[in-house]
Amino acid sequence: MTSLARIFLGLVLVFLYLPIVVMAAMGFNASPLYALPFDFSTHWYEELAGNGRLIEAGWNSIWLAVLTAVIATALGTLAALALWRRTFRGRAILRILLLPPIAIPWLITGTAMLVFFFWTGIGRGLHAMLIGHVALAIPYVVLVVGTGLQTLRADLEEAAMSLGSTPIHAFFRVTLPLLMPSIVGAALFAFAVSLDQFVISYFLSVPGMTTLPVEIYSAIRKGFTPEINAISTILLVASMIVILGFARFARPGGIGERS
């Protein structure tokens, strides 16, 4: 029974990783028509280095993700502190209001942003994408940091205050250090959300101001070469590294304290 279960798990993993591995391997195959047999070559990566459009889109993606992570983590952490450490009327409703960006299909959110930004003159472009990405990332940050706060006992701060800490000092000496893993985890998460975001970016992009996923999409639809495999592989590996970092920081039983 146990070995049967392990075989099944193995098959699930093959299903999840096989296409990714095939896709990555084809980036190292010399044939532009994906013809086999396999002929190892770094040609497509060299080609990629000279592709200004993709490189620029790549940098756009990275900057967008960095800014999204910084802004969403800062704002979301503050909100989490209010939502999990203070009691006030309307708290339940405010928590529920975090869900629409997560729960509503991105297609709807994205087109709504398109309509609204057009209507108000905010327009499209990287600035519009930043507004959208941060909004998508804030709920995740609030939930990750909020979970961290929940496992952090409130009496630690009280203990610090009983020993002479002002609330601000107690926050910086006790709460913040213990919350740091959650905050770093949340920032990595926000970074990944932005880096991988396609739908919202797609509706808010203008030619010349796109992100990598949008460029990849238009390439896939218009006809492509293994260059796209190369850049896709790079994007995939980058996300995996970021998410493994997140798992390292925010994983239950990590550095975040509970007794």
Binding site: L78, R86, P100, P101, I108, A112, V134, A135
Partner: peptide, 19 residues
């Protein structure tokens, strides 16, 4: 503490959906 996040969500999600 709440204003920045919720103002942002309003601008980027709630108002667009309304529009």
């Amino acid at each position: 503490l709440l204003l920045p996040s919720y103002a942002w969500l309003t601008l980027a999600v709630l108002l667009p959906l309304t529009a």
